[in-house]
Design a protein around this nucleic acid. Structure first.
Lengths: 336, 336
DNA sequence: ATGGTTGATGAAACCGGTTACATGTGTCAA
DNA sequence: TTGACACATGTAACCGGTTTCATCAACCAT
């Protein structure tokens, strides 16, 4: 043993002692180097290096009151739509010197609260949740801790939290309109859980209220590739004369496409297929998937900026509505 | 204004004063309630509620020396293989009352270091990185901070960090063997970047060294669906008589399948197709994708447990080798 | 009655940074 | 020569928890 290598970690006072300066000076070297003379700065940095000094995040946090990280709660990582969103959110937060912690809720409100509590418990300065359906305990937590919190993936100016997202009803309707305008009337809808996922709920509800919505046939399936496969199976059992299948997510649409191919049903010649999301892969399927592009990258950017100014300047964010956009590719056509 | 609602946040001393007890007692109510009498516990909890007390994570961290969260660095979230892994890692860490922070590196070593630095800076107690190729600065950081760190997705007992993962060379070879045993000899390989991704590098290298490996034709493409599409295009230009395409990832294989379908090339009748990973969707494509299953869920569990005991009991984890498994589905067959 | 335990609680030190304020030195204008 | 002022640095309080050790009352066996 060298007799000094395995000592306990050096702290700022050790560095100060080694450099022959005060703790304040060491602190300054880290936080406002320009306020320290060249000579002492060198001395201090030398001491830091030889003592292998690493500042304690907790100690800094306790005196500044800032931890510089925020938490995001999403239903799952197992859907490329969240990957896109989170990746932008993270990079944009980074520009504000903020880090992101992601927690998954499986779409279960109780799990969401639990995860939110953990996030706050380890020091998250703010929370970003998905959608507007949450357990009451989440609001209590946010309220009690006075935690800045916002909701994404939807738009609702009346919601308790600022929302940043798109109009899910409009997205669903623009998809339906596309199919209708092509001449489809026997349309089947495959969608994920609506109870716990208000984004899906809003989309389905919009279709139901639509004039002529009564003719639509709805099938609830898990929000996965497999769910999309099963959905097609049920569509074909329930209504074999369906000319178009509208999936409320690209993941399910991808599964649906697989199943249609497996059954030898030509897309779009025999059945037209649509999704909503516009995943990176959706442009490359064969045929290319017609879908509604959701501006999740932009959502990440806007959310990051809004949150940052909330934390820095206490400015409560305004709700933001981002436009979705119909993307017509090759999976839809006129009915046979 | 009520005159008290908007006051600054209550701390433990405020609670103690309100409850007429000492700070130690309040602390005990939170951490070892059984050591406090029923009566005082009630009193303290009442004071906590009426003052809307929320303990400060930073303050706790500074005295316990624990932040209870660890960081994981992955190349991207945009690949379902990581979603699977991270989801298990997170849930298993949760069982040890540890939280997970995920950062993405885009597969760039410099970005990785930067992100790692940020993670440590905000208090991560340990790091989990992917693979064995890293910037020297990462090791310095780990070394200097004495940060427990391990590497996943590969197995190398000789590596500086404990590794928990699978044998990438074996995975690639078992795929190749499957194709060879079916009678394929004109095989094209589509793979992602090998320079920055050692997992891919190891797989490709294993194929190159294989007796008869010289007959293989390799194509480097981005690790994405689109990359898979492009790969097929290049395969068909370079070697139209190819009877089997082996992709080093299921993402690329999925793209390849799309492109083959688009070109009207029957799988597996005209060309056999294989991937490596076994994504959730791979079982449902049409035809089902033959691939090599990588035990990423188990990897998440093992990594979480190992890291936890490292942190709790200072036991340096042993490297762990997890078995991959060939999954034969319908995208491979004898050459025409 | 007495010494030894056990159980509940409090006082104060401690963790490792940041920062308000004080101090000391040198420069420059009046 | 002196006062104003900028600049570099030090002192010590402070942030909000945890934890050690001391204290004191109640209980029990001898």
């Amino acid at each position: 043993m060298t007799g000094k290598a395995t000592r306990k970690k050096a702290n700022l006072r050790d560095v100060a002692a080694a450099a022959g300066v005060s703790v304040a000076t060491v602190s300054r070297v880290m936080n406002s180097p320009e306020a320290v003379s060249q000579a002492t700065r060198k001395k201090v940095q030398g001491a830091m290096d030889s003592l292998r000094f690493m500042p304690s995040a907790a100690a800094r946090a306790i005196s500044t009151g800032r931890t510089r990280f925020v938490g995001a709660l999403v239903p799952t990582l197992d859907n490329a739509i969240f990957a896109r969103y989170l990746s932008r959110l993270e990079s944009q937060l980074g520009k504000h010197r903020l880090s992101l912690i992601v927690s998954t809720t499986d779409g279960v409100p109780e799990t969401e609260v639990e995860k939110a509590r953990t996030l706050v418990d380890i020091g998250a300065e703010a929370l970003i949740v998905s959608g507007v359906t949450h357990d009451a305990a989440l609001y209590e937590l946010i309220d009690r801790g006075e935690i800045p919190a916002m909701a994404t993936s939807c738009f609702d100016p009346g919601f308790a939290l600022p929302t940043i997202g798109y109009d899910n009803a409009a997205a669903a309707l623009s998809a339906l309109t596309h199919l209708s305008s092509l001449g489809h009337s026997r349309i089947s809808v495959i969608h994920g859980p609506t109870e716990t996922n208000d984004r899906t709920g809003t989309r389905v509800e919009a279709l139901r209220r639509q004039p002529g919505g009564a003719e639509l046939m709805f099938h609830l399936e898990p929000l996965s590739i497999e769910g999309g496969c099963n959905g097609v199976q049920r569509v074909m059992e329930a209504r074999p004369d369906t000319t178009a299948i509208l999936c409320m997510s690209d993941v399910q649409a991808t599964g649906a496409l697989y199943e249609l191919q497996r059954r030898g049903i030509a897309v779009p010649a025999q059945v037209s297929l649509m999704g909503i999301d516009d995943l990176p892969g959706s442009a490359h399927t064969s045929p290319g998937l017609t879908t509604v592009h959701l501006p999740v990258s932009q959502m990440g950017i806007v959310a990051a900026d809004a949150l940052s100014s909330w934390l820095e300047a206490q400015t409560l964010p305004e709700p933001v509505l981002l436009e979705s956009r119909l993307v017509v590719r090759d999976s839809t056509g006129r009915p046979a």
